[in-house]
């Protein structure tokens, strides 16, 4: 059996184990209102997914959060380039990023609700959560570029674009991948949390809020499952965009 098939079986076995734990816990609870079973959740998810409104809701939430994440990735990379070149900018920006990372997301959501429209808050919050992570990782990547390779580029007078493509990007890319891996889930969850508090029309957050309000626990679980599935899909998609990990001593 190939290692890949073995890995697949192991993943399935782990999944099965936790589904069994969940099923047993639901059976022990004995009430769908307290804890719906995986089957009940899946049934509800399928029922929701059969309507066009579900996809419209998911689509709008994804669009909001993805806009925030992409803005944060672009901003984080640009700011990292800036602070890498300017110690003054680094000194100014570094405490701000620490502040953003340590402030509770709920505080930002409430503040943003005062400043921005309810449709923009999830975009802003997702961006705010992702930005410091991307900035910190890309900065680490830039600091980690082998100075010997940069000297080589100087000696051979390599064009700037070639240096960017062949030295800078491959050195930074593993750090950007790591940043995306840890920040995407964070951004997505924060974005949905912002939706729960701001309840914009056609949003997963609003549906979660309503499910809570009307004690629709199964629907709450179904929407949460949808959030997890979409999160996984976005992570796979964005990591694919950034490129595959190489088996050699780096990536390109």
């Amino acid at each position: 059996m190939s290692p890949r098939v073995q890995g697949l079986f192991r993943t399935l076995a782990v999944l099965l184990f936790w589904l069994l734990v969940w099923t047993s816990a639901a059976a022990l609870a004995g009430q769908e209102l307290l804890l719906p079973s995986p089957a009940q959740t899946a049934r509800k998810l399928l029922e929701l997914a059969s309507g066009a409104e579900f996809w419209l809701t998911v689509g709008r939430s994804v669009l909001r959060v993805l806009t925030g994440i992409l803005a944060a990735v672009t901003g984080g990379v640009l700011l990292a380039l800036l602070t890498h070149r300017s110690p003054l900018c680094m000194a100014l920006l570094s405490p701000l990023m620490t502040l953003v990372k340590s402030t509770p997301v709920a505080s930002f959501i409430i503040l943003a609700l005062v400043w921005l429209g309810r449709n923009t808050v999830p975009v802003f919050i997702a961006a705010l959560m992702v930005l410091p992570v991307v900035w910190a990782n890309v900065s680490a990547g830039l600091r980690g570029i082998d100075p010997g390779l940069l000297e080589l580029a100087r000696v051979y007078e390599l064009p700037r674009l070639r240096v960017l493509r062949r030295i800078t990007w491959p050195s930074v890319r593993p750090h950007l991948r790591a940043a995306l891996r840890s920040a995407l889930g964070l951004g997505w969850k924060a974005g949905i949390a912002a939706e729960v508090l701001t309840v914009p029309a056609l949003s997963i957050g609003k549906r979660i809020y309503e499910a809570k309000l009307y004690l629709e626990t199964t629907e709450l679980f179904a929407w949460t499952a949808a959030v997890v599935l979409v999160s996984l899909a976005i992570e796979k998609l964005l990591l694919r965009l950034v490129g595959k990990e190489s088996t050699h001593a780096g990536t390109e």
């Binding site: 010997g148 001593a249 780096g250 990536t251």
Partner: peptide
């Protein structure tokens, strides 16, 4: 005029093949 150097350590790009490393210059 063009410059070139062979350093004490090879200074090859680890993510490029040997031929691509030469082709870089």
């Amino acid at each position: 005029g063009g410059l070139a150097a062979v350093f004490q350590e090879p200074r090859l790009l680890p993510w490029r093949t040997a031929a691509e490393n030469v082709n870089l210059v």
